[in-house]
Design a binder for these strands. Structure first.
Lengths: 351, 351
DNA sequence: TTGAAAGCGCTACCAA
DNA sequence: TTGGTAGCGCTTTCAA
């Protein structure tokens, strides 16, 4: 006997597609009426609306995305360009990605994922093929090569980060300049006269990553203002890299008593290494991190930190993108004010 | 004087859309010919092909995705469902996501991002609205609630992870059972008689996350075979959680001399805490991790580890999805054999 | 308040 | 080897 029954059915068969015409027929109205019920673009009598909604539910109707995009020139998709770099803060990036996707859904949009390695060509492709209505770009550099493309594409776009020339573009970010400044103030207020910034990987600075430079300049400027001695070092995110940094920063005749760490990946190693060197936090050295709150909490010593509000930024980016889609809006650079939370890893200098 | 000039132009204007008809006209052929040149679905004379390609390049033509999807019932998009959980291994998830996106591009596909919080409804939505041709699902649980939906949708799908009943579904994953087993063998071969597994968060086990259970059972079974004493503990991924684990595992009259760590987030804290307790690795205690190689390398002590091949898995998942799209294919569960790399954190028991 | 129907840009069938 | 053209399912004008 030949195999038969449910198991011999082909693995994939097309499920019966329900169209707007099916709904219209079932509800006893015209397709255009169904369309208008869905879009709300013209007034519909209460009874008609109910009948239509009922049919939609019963038939399990879902508008065909392609057809809708073709007819309306709106895809209801936003493209999100994520960095591939591993020297970036992975958890922050991931938080951002999920926040964006979640926020997009609240506006009835989906997210198309682009990787940064496609570069400007990727942006072109997505726009020219009408795959998305708007673009959100992460990991923006100071001299961002994608910025001119974005401008000439004329597609609604939101940058996470601020390039040197944000003219005509919508950007959101944490106010890293203020963050750098706040960190210095916090430590200076506690009496520290010798502080140090342990920054991201040299590669991050080298390619002019927007936030790194801004944090650095806020840090330096305020250090000068407050008259504190401030060393700054890029730090390769490995245990050895960190060790080198510490050797430099904690040696000498005026070792740093306060460390600002703008490099999430080495927070753990830093605390281990300090412990190994018999330095206790915050008695011997204060540690102030720049990272998401949950990361700060999870360390061996809960860290005082300036939050990186990835979720808020994601939400905000989507919100601004939607505003751009709704019609011409003034380009703006929106910087969220930093929030510093003391968690016990920073304290007064012990004489 | 009223503002005028380039600056007063509206921020977004529709760029002139180039259609297949434009290309056809420019090349002096019919639209269908252009279409066939692009799809390769029928033979085209060399001269025609060249003329068409030339026009495409000159005009900068990009096929409209919506129109193409509507006409061909193929979106060239795969949906990727990512977990939102923060108790998961974020870097692994991110590696996987980027690997998937990159691999998809090599097949001329894009990736639509879905978050797991949409659940089965999200799968429904994407399929019913023809947003994607195939679905890749991460973070699969043993009694995966999305599995029945996936089966009845009949859409090509690939799971990362293996549910209890993978019947009719295509799955890829690391062979975690073998991985658990290999870890025990490695330590037993080094002479360890008392070993322990520090696993993922209790929440991960509680919801029956596929890989966690399989690793655990491989670990236990082999421990029994080899006659070694094997403790197993779930570990909340915080410093305190870890401390508790260690208190349990290293105390008693037969403390563990070998630790297998299937919890990436606590690797750093673990090493710090061991150092704090004056236990050196591997002299006093061997540590064997399950994590991506770069994470293992970056620790204070480079860790012997079983690799989690996120990139390979992403590629493979896409590859299998593409195969499913090409026509009926046998469902299969593809488990990658584990690879254990010794990096010096595991050694013989010191008597 | 509703319907009819003309496309949106592309694919793929039917002809040649 | 090529062209003509009928749709794919939807939105949106134009008319009633």
């Amino acid at each position: 006997m030949v195999h038969s029954g449910p198991d011999s059915s082909p693995p994939y068969y097309d499920p019966p597609m329900v169209t707007i015409a099916d709904v219209a027929r079932a509800a006893g109205v015209s397709p255009s009426t169904v369309s208008y019920v869905l879009s709300g673009k013209r007034s519909i009598s209460e009874t008609t609306r109910r009948r239509v909604h009922h049919s939609i539910r019963v038939l399990g109707y879902q508008p065909n995305a392609g057809a809708r995009a073709l007819a309306s020139s709106r895809t209801n998709v936003v493209a999100l360009v994520v960095p591939l770099r591993s020297d970036l803060n992975v958890p922050v990036v991931m938080e951002f990605v999920t926040a964006t996707a979640t926020a997009a859904r609240t506006y009835d949009h989906d997210v198309l994922l682009l990787t940064a390695d496609e570069g400007a060509a990727g942006l072109h492709r997505v726009v020219a093929s009408s795959l998305a209505d708007a673009i959100i770009v992460m990991d923006v550099e100071a001299a961002e090569p994608r910025v001119p493309v974005l401008r000439e594409l004329g597609t609604p776009a939101v940058l996470i980060g601020v390039p040197d020339d944000p003219h005509g573009l919508t950007c959101v970010d944490l106010d890293f300049t203020a963050a750098g400044s706040d960190c210095v103030h916090h430590l200076a207020d506690l009496g520290h006269r010798d502080i140090a910034l342990i920054g991201p990987s040299p590669a991050v600075y080298r390619r002019g990553t927007s936030y790194a430079g801004r944090f650095l300049s806020g840090f330096r400027r305020t250090a000068a203002t407050r008259g504190v001695e401030a060393a700054t070092m890029a730090c390769v995110p490995t245990y050895d890299g960190l060790r080198e940094c510490l050797d430099d920063l904690l040696a000498g005749h005026r070792p740093a008593t306060g460390l600002v760490v703008h490099n999430e990946a080495i927070l753990g190693p830093l605390l281990s290494e300090l412990a190994r060197r018999q330095l206790s936090v915050p008695e011997d050295v204060s540690v102030l991190a720049v990272c998401p709150p949950d990361v700060a909490q999870a360390q061996a010593v809960p860290l005082s930190s300036v939050d990186i509000p990835a979720v808020e930024l994601g939400r905000l980016a989507v919100e601004l993108a939607m505003r751009l889609l709704d019609g011409p809006a003034e380009p703006e650079v929106r910087l969220l004010p930093p929030r510093l939370t003391a968690r016990g890893s920073t304290g007064p200098v012990v004489a």
